[in-house]
Each structure stands twice: as structure tokens, then as C-alpha cells.
Design a protein around this nucleic acid. Structure first.
Length: 832
RNA sequence: GCGGGCGUGGCGGAACUGGAAGACGCGCAGGGCUUAGGACCCUGUGGGGUCACCCCGUGGGGGUUCGACUCCCUCCGCCCGCACCA
């Protein structure tokens, strides 16, 4: 009698054994080729979600597969331990963020271990540990030295609920809400710290040398928002020496300008406004400020503005143009001022209609009859009413006008980016203190390296208002100036937690290194990350920041490369059984622990991989998981009943199926070639699928293999081929279902551990079938199927088809016009 | 509005480079085993018909081709991202 597969028992057993044997600790400097496999580290929210499993279990399978392929694989794990939920817990429940975070990490470590992943826990990092975040401060100081970290007063996005500023990337949607809590953000003018990511804008558009999904590349490209144009000056009439600059991507339309628009906050507005217009202008400025603050969600986007009384001079035509202010011009983009060309810009068109400004056409649309336009024409065409440039194709005129402006010193070609510098100041407690001291005598003074880390004090008083306790923590705030030694104050803002994740992959290399962020030799061995996996939601945040960070590190001479992760894969999102996003309020949250307890980790892993393509995500199905349970039970029965010391005796040391030509030595059992073929075919398929992260089809081909093996077991048990089949099956299973594979491997009498075995190889000859089904078509319709030798020559296939009774019948006496032969697949007889 | 993706049975999905549509699994139906089973084993399962056979069928329409889920055009629907970016 064979025991039933008991996942709970074997999973516990092997997890303990692997840990005891340090099976998952990666060895630095191993001569095997290295493979750095990284999956995004979790935020310690308290419970491991099925989404974590979906992200991590297939990653683990891929990492395990790499190891069996002969790589020295490191698969590290840690915790993204700073952040707001911890602080909110402190405010709401009186638990200190440190305790809340630590407790959660402890719970999640246990849950993560239940997955049976090959994480190297000896490299674990916890970002709220001073040992970690001191290097955030160190990096900050290096960036400060290089002018890449700076402080400025700027209108910034503020979340009133979380009581902090946010980076532009963290403000989402049309309603401009806080990425974290969904509250609409407001604008505030604040002194904040920024990192100069825009200095790398152009380079961040270059994705050469990395295999990242197009989706992420496009998101980043759009976010960076490069636009090529011309920036030129416009003088203000009757204000000698006063001018402002505008940016345009359409210098070819400059003769069509009939007005100019400044952003309401533009610094020149107060200076230029005429007394008779002042009241109206002030009123509009007030309204615009209010609108951008609160009610941007109003559906009406009426394109309004106010004339300020002054005129600008079109530098090309010399004509005066009324200057307006309007909130459709943003101070934060370009120069905060535009030329209004109503005929060739949709927004300017609307504006001109509303204020009855002329709409002269300067780019003639194809077939234009000279009548007024009903909407702005945005395309290319022939230039008209454009002085000396009339008659040119607009594409050429673009260049000629840009040249002319440059030659006359009016303006020059300019590239603008939508990307903003990264606002990293957070007015919160649970984060890395920014290592800056403000001295009344010396100004802004960086903390000296030997004073690092600036430790976040744990004795903090949390106020219900959400204000940072650091502001009121005298012991923290009061310090002495490193320069002059007099009393000074520390910066009380902390850093965005995306700082932590911008370089965490480097820290795993040597998590306890005390003199550097990471140890150089180990870094040289392991870096960069070979394969990264995680959710696409970080496309323009974490994934952009970490690229930026690496480029800075490269410029500092810390690494010889400019891209942190060579390959990226974005898994999909796992949904609730109802097909909706999982949420507590919907009550459709799947708790992986329950399933692990009942069905086992291998089954949960297998189900998540089987559900569909990994990047597709999809709804959880509690019935569907039974299919995997059954499959594993079938494998269990098959292996335990037909191999091992119990019944059939051990077949001896394992041989690579590809290396052993068993056919010549073992008495031929009818069908054994078939068995070998299936074994090799399956090895090939699973290998290719795991290579491309196609876990779903890898598992289905293993199912087919097992189904086949059940069908022939009575004839084949005891043969050498059967032994090879069993070993191959268990090896192929090992990356995806590591516990059951290890247990079966042991029961087969094979040497520990299955995970240290070499991945089985196959030969093409055996992977290909000897006999194929030849499809016979008449005029493209399948009329018969016949068995034929795989290497059948074309001429013979043709003969078979033409002699076929059913083919003849469907030809119905017509003449053969053509015969198309696809070797090994089909013959199509085309009739006249 | 701009950009990206997707549309295949009751369900999740499969189909290499244009060559057997629906693999594998769930569900369902029938049978076996069993005191019993929601365990296990076997068989069947896209739709329709005049049912040993044939026709239709991958969102709709059109095209290219001997042959289209796959390529091209067009329309419809859904999802995601960005959005007054000059």
C-alpha cells in the first residue's frame, strides 16, 4: 500500500531540511556563471496576500530552473519597511511604527517560508534598519555634492490626508489623487528637496542593452515626455528691455500667431498688467489658483482667460499681439508662456473663438479652398501667409524658421521634457532622515559622513493631526553646526521610500558591509541583476528611479554599467473569484494560508502557474485548484507505485536520458521507443516553456505526459526507459513543485537534493516523432488523416494523397491544379 | 483626445515561423469501484443537421493566400496608461 501524498508533512520536513543544510545560500565568487534573480521585495503590510504568491512563486520556479541549468543563482529577499501604514497604525492604534513593522515582518517571514522558495535569507535586508538607511543618507550626500540633490521653493503636490508632499509620479489620474490613499491633492508652495532626475532624461529614454517589456518602455517614454521645438523671446510693446520666452513645437506656424498667453502665475504678469485690467486679472489669478487647488474635477473645461492690457511683438512678423493669462498654460511646463496660433492648435482655436480673435491660416490643409477653418488644422501642409516662408512645405519651413530665429538671435532649438525632478521630502516620521543641518550662520550644511547614520529617534510622540513627530522632537531637531559648532537645526523631513528601493538590489550583495553601500568585489561578481520581476504599477516610479540611481552610481564610478536590471518581467494581477480586484470591502480576498494548509504550498504554487500566462493574471478559482491537487496525487501514485526500494528496486545511479542509448542494451519492450519519445518531447517542451516563463503550458505538458504514462504503465514498468521517465518527471517538476519533487526523489532512492541535480537534457531525434499524422486536404478542407513516417519525401506524400479514396471522392472528378506539401504535416490537393 | 493591449467552448486557457482550432485543467454527463462518497479509475463533452457522414465556427464585415485565431484594411466592444505638456 502506498501512502497518500501528504503535503503538510513533507513540506514541513523539507523546508526544515533545506534550511538546516543552507541549501539556498548563494556562494560569492563561485566559478559557475552567476545569475542574479530578483523579485520585488514586499512591503510588510502584515499578511502575505495571494498577490505576493502570484508574484513570487513563479519567480522562484524560474530561479530554481536556472540553478538546475548550472548557474550560481542568488535569489534574495527583504522588506520595504519604511512607509506610511506603519505610522498610521501608530496614530490610530497607539502601536509604535517600529513594533508594528517588526511584528509584521516576523509574521510575513513565516508566511514567506511556507512557500518553499529558494530565498537566501542570509542576505535579508530591512530598510528601516539604520544599517540600511544610513546608505540612503550617504547617497543623498553624494548627490548633494554633485548638485543632484537640491532644495527649492516650488508649488508642490500635497496630500491633505497623509499630511505630506508627494512626487509627481505619486499623483494619479484625472482627479489628481494621492496614489496611496486616493485623496485629491492640493498645491502648496513649499521648500522641498529634489533629486535632479531630469539631468538624465535623455539617457533614460535609451533602453538599448536591456530586455524590458515594451509596455514599461512606452510608459517611461510617455512619462519623460520629450518634445523637440524652439524657444524664442517675445518683446513686450512699450516696455523696452522687457521680454518673455515661449516654447513651441511648431515654429512653422509662428506667422499664424494672433495672441500670446502667460500662465496666471507667470512672474511678468504683475509687471505688465495695465491699471484698468488689474482687478480682472487679480480675480482670474485667484480663481485659477483655487481651481488648481480644489475643483479640477469639474467636467467643464471652458477655455477662458483675461487680457492683461499689454502687447507682445511677434518677432518674425513684427506685429503686436494681445497678451492674455489663461489657466490652460502651465507655469511648470516649458517657459510658462505660449504663442497663440488658433488655426493650428486646438486649444488656441477654442480660445480665439471665445474671444473673437482672428484665426489666420498659415498651413494650408490639402485641398483647402481658402475658407475659414471649422476646427484647428494640426497636420502638415504648404505654408501660406508666412512672409518669405510662404510656399514651403511646413516640414521644411519648421527648420528654416528655426534657423532664421537662431540667426537673428531671437531663439534657438530646444528640447523640453515633461519629466520633473523627483521630490523626495516627506513630512512624515517613518522614513530616512534627510542628513542636512540648517545653521543660521552657515546656511544649509550637510551632515558629515562620519556622523552617519542620522538615526531616527524611536521615542516619538504621534499626534492625531499626522504632523511629523520629528518636528517636535527637540533632542532630534537641536544639534550643532558641523561647520561652526554653534547651535543649529536638523532637517525634519524624511525621504520618499522609493529611495530605499532605488538601490536595494546592490545591498543584497553584501548586506552587512559597514564601509560602503556594497562591497565592490562581490558587486563585480553578482551585478547587475539578470532577471527582475514585479508589477507594472511601478513603471514610472520605482523602475524609473532605480534606472536613474544606477546611472548616478555609474557616474560616481561605483558600477561599470548604467542599467540596473537586464531583463524585466511584469506579472499580471490576480483577481478575486468574482473577477474583480481583491479588496477587503468587496470581501473577495483569497487568503493563501488557508489553501496552503489544506492543499499544500506545491498545489498553490502550481495552480497560480497553471491559471494562464503569468503576465495575464486573472481570477482565482477555488475549484480549479483541485485539478493541480489531483495531478500531484497522480504523480505521487505513479512514482511511488512504480519505482523506489519498495517494489521494483532502485535502478541505480541516474543517467542523463540524452546520454543513454538504452535501446541498444535493453530487450526491446514494444512501445519503449514511444516512451522515450514522450520523455524527450516533454523535457524539450518544459525546458522551452520555463525559459520563457510559460509555466501554464509547462504544467499542461507535464499533465499530458503523466496521462500518457498512466496509459502505458502496465507494459513499461521495470524497463530502463520507465526509470528514466520517472526521474525526468520528478526533475521537471522540481522547480515548480519543489517539496513533492524532493520527497519523491528521496523515495526513488536518488541522492539528495533533487534541486542540486542537473536539468535533464533531450535529443532532438528522440523529441521528434517517428510517425506523424499527415493531414490530407482538398481545396484547403481536411478530408482525411493518415499515419506516415516522419521523414517521408514530398513526392511520396503527394502520391499517398492522390491515391487516397476520400481525397478522390472530394475531388469529384475535377482536375488537379496544384499539390501543396508541407513536409510532416499536410498535403493540400488544389483542384481546378 | 493621444499611446498601449485584448476579443477563441459554460469557465481558465492552448495553437511553433500562415498548415489538424479548442491541447491541458475546471465544470457537466454517463459508466466502473464502493456500505457510502464531494475519494479514485474509465469514457464523452464547440454549435447545428437529413447524425457511419456533412455543414458552420476564433467579436462583425471585407481582403491577401492553395490554406488565416495568426498577415492587411475597416467597424464594434472591453481593459490599461497619459492627458490643457504648447
Amino acid at each position: 500500500m502506498t501512502e497518500r501524498h501528504n503535503p503538510t508533512a513533507i513540506e514541513k520536513k523539507w523546508q526544515a531540511r533545506w534550511e538546516q543544510d543552507r541549501l539556498h545560500e548563494a556562494k560569492d565568487f563561485d566559478p559557475k556563471p552567476k545569475w542574479y534573480f530578483l523579485t520585488m521585495y514586499p512591503y510588510p503590510s502584515g499578511d502575505l496576500h495571494i498577490g505576493h504568491w502570484y508574484a513570487m512563486a513563479p519567480s522562484d520556479a524560474a530561479a530554481r530552473y536556472r540553478r538546475m541549468q548550472g548557474y550560481n543563482v542568488v535569489f534574495p529577499i527583504g522588506f520595504d519597511a519604511f512607509g506610511l501604514p506603519a505610522e498610521n497604525a501608530a496614530i490610530q492604534h497607539g502601536i509604535h511604527p517600529y513594533k508594528w513593522t517588526t511584528d509584521n515582518i516576523n509574521r510575513m517571514r513565516t508566511q514567506l517560508r511556507s512557500m518553499g522558495a529558494m530565498w537566501d535569507w542570509s542576505r535579508e535586508i530591512v530598510t528601516c534598519d539604520p544599517e540600511y538607511y544610513r546608505w540612503n543618507q550617504w547617497f543623498f550626500l553624494r548627490m548633494y555634492e554633485r548638485g543632484l540633490a537640491y532644495r527649492k521653493l516650488a508649488p508642490v503636490d500635497w496630500c491633505p490626508k497623509d499630511n505630506t508632499t508627494l512626487a509627481r509620479e505619486q499623483v494619479v489620474g484625472e482627479e489628481r489623487v494621492c496614489e496611496r490613499c486616493g485623496t485629491p491633492v492640493i498645491k502648496k508652495n513649499l521648500e522641498q528637496w529634489f533629486l535632479k532626475i531630469t539631468a538624465y532624461a535623455e539617457e533614460l529614454l535609451d533602453f538599448s542593452g536591456i530586455a524590458w517589456p515594451d509596455r514599461v518602455r512606452v510608459l517611461q517614454e510617455n512619462w519623460i515626455g520629450k518634445s523637440v521645438g524652439v524657444e524664442f523671446a517675445m518683446e513686450v510693446k512699450d516696455h523696452p528691455g522687457v521680454s518673455f520666452r515661449v516654447f513651441t513645437t511648431r515654429p512653422d506656424t509662428v506667422y499664424g500667431m494672433t495672441f500670446a498667453v502667460l500662465a496666471p502665475e507667470h512672474p511678468l504678469v504683475d509687471q505688465l498688467v495695465t491699471p484698468d485690467r488689474r482687478r480682472e486679472v487679480e480675480a482670474y489669478k485667484f480663481k485659477a489658483a483655487r481651481a488648481s487647488d480644489i475643483e479640477r474635477l469639474s467636467t467643464e473645461k471652458d477655455r477662458d482667460g483675461v487680457f492683461i492690457g499689454a502687447f507682445a511683438v511677434n518677432p518674425m512678423s513684427g506685429e503686436p499681439m494681445p497678451i492674455y493669462i489663461a489657466d490652460y498654460v502651465l507655469l511648470t511646463y516649458g517657459t510658462g508662456a505660449i504663442m497663440g496660433v488658433p488655426a493650428h492648435d486646438a486649444r488656441d482655436f477654442e480660445f480665439a473663438k471665445k474671444y473673437q480673435l482672428p484665426i489666420p491660416v498659415v498651413i494650408a490643409p490639402p485641398g483647402w479652398d481658402g475658407t475659414p477653418l471649422r476646427e484647428a488644422y494640426l497636420g502638415e501642409g504648404t505654408m501660406v501667409n508666412s512672409g518669405a516662408f510662404s510656399g514651403l512645405p511646413s516640414v521644411e519651413g519648421w527648420e528654416r524658421i528655426a534657423d532664421a530665429m537662431a540667426a537673428r538671435g531671437i531663439g534657438e532649438r530646444k528640447i523640453n521634457y515633461r519629466l520633473h525632478d523627483w521630490l523626495i521630502s516627506r513630512q512624515r516620521y517613518w522614513g530616512t532622515p534627510i542628513p542636512i543641518i540648517y545653521c543660521t550662520h552657515c546656511g544649509t550644511v550637510p551632515v558629515r559622513d562620519n556622523e552617519l547614520p542620522v538615526v531616527l529617534p524611536l521615542d516619538a510622540e504621534f499626534r492625531p493631526t499626522g504632523e511629523s513627530p520629528l518636528k517636535f522632537h527637540e533632542g532630534f531637531r537641536r544639534t550643532t553646526c558641523p561647520n561652526c559648532g554653534r547651535g543649529a537645526e536638523r532637517e525634519t523631513d524624511t525621504m520618499d521610500t522609493f529611495i530605499d528601493s532605488s538601490w536595494y538590489q546592490y545591498r543584497y550583495v553584501s548586506p552587512h558591509e559597514e564601509r560602503h553601500p556594497f562591497e565592490a568585489k562581490r558587486g563585480t561578481y553578482w551585478l547587475p541583476v539578470d532577471q527582475y520581476t514585479g508589477g507594472v504599477e511601478h513603471a514610472v516610479m520605482h523602475l524609473l528611479y532605480t534606472r536613474f540611481w544606477t546611472k548616478v552610481m555609474r557616474d560616481m564610478g561605483m558600477v561599470p554599467f548604467g542599467e540596473p536590471m537586464l531583463r524585466l518581467f511584469n506579472q499580471g494581477v490576480i483577481l478575486g473569484e468574482d473577477g474583480e480586484k481583491m479588496s477587503k470591502s468587496r470581501g473577495n480576498v483569497v487568503n493563501p494560508d488557508d489553501y496552503v494548509q489544506n492543499a499544500g504550498a506545491d498545489t498553490v504554487r502550481g495552480y497560480l502557474m497553471f491559471i494562464g500566462p503569468w503576465d495575464g493574471g486573472g481570477p482565482w478559482n477555488s475549484r480549479g485548484i483541485e485539478g493541480i491537487s489531483r495531478f500531484l496525487q497522480r504523480v505521487w501514485n505513479l512514482v511511488t507505485e512504480t519505482t523506489g526500494t519498495r517494489e521494483h528496486g532502485n535502478t541505480g545511479t541516474r543517467k542523463d536520458p540524452a546520454a543513454s542509448d538504452t535501446r541498444s542494451r535493453v530487450p526491446a519492450i514494444p512501445g519503449s521507443r514511444d516512451l522515450e519519445h514522450w520523455t524527450h518531447k516533454t523535457i524539450k517542451k518544459v525546458t522551452e516553456d520555463l525559459e520563457g516563463f510559460h509555466f501554464n503550458t509547462a504544467i499542461s505538458s507535464l499533465m499530458e505526459y503523466v496521462n500518457f504514462l498512466y496509459g502505458i504503465r502496465d507494459e513499461q514498468v521495470g524497463s530502463a526507459q520507465w526509470g528514466e521517465a520517472m526521474r525526468s518527471l520528478v526533475l521537471l517538476l522540481a522547480p515548480m513543485m519543489p517539496h513533492v519533487a524532493e520527497e519523491l526523489w528521496e523515495q526513488m532512492g536518488e541522492p539528495y537534493s533533487v534541486h542540486l541535480q542537473r536539468w535533464p537534457s533531450y535529443t532532438e531525434g528522440l523529441a521528434n516523432a517517428e510517425v506523424v499524422t499527415l493531414v490530407l486536404q482538398v481545396d484547403g478542407k481536411v478530408r482525411d488523416r493518415v499515419q506516415a513516417a516522419a521523414g517521408l519525401p514530398e513526392s511520396e506524400a503527394r502520391t499517398i494523397a492522390l491515391a487516397n479514396e476520400r481525397v478522390k471522392k472530394f475531388m469529384d472528378g475535377r482536375q488537379v491544379a496544384d499539390v501543396i506539401v508541407v513536409p510532416g504535416r499536410l498535403v493540400n490537393v488544389v483542384t481546378k
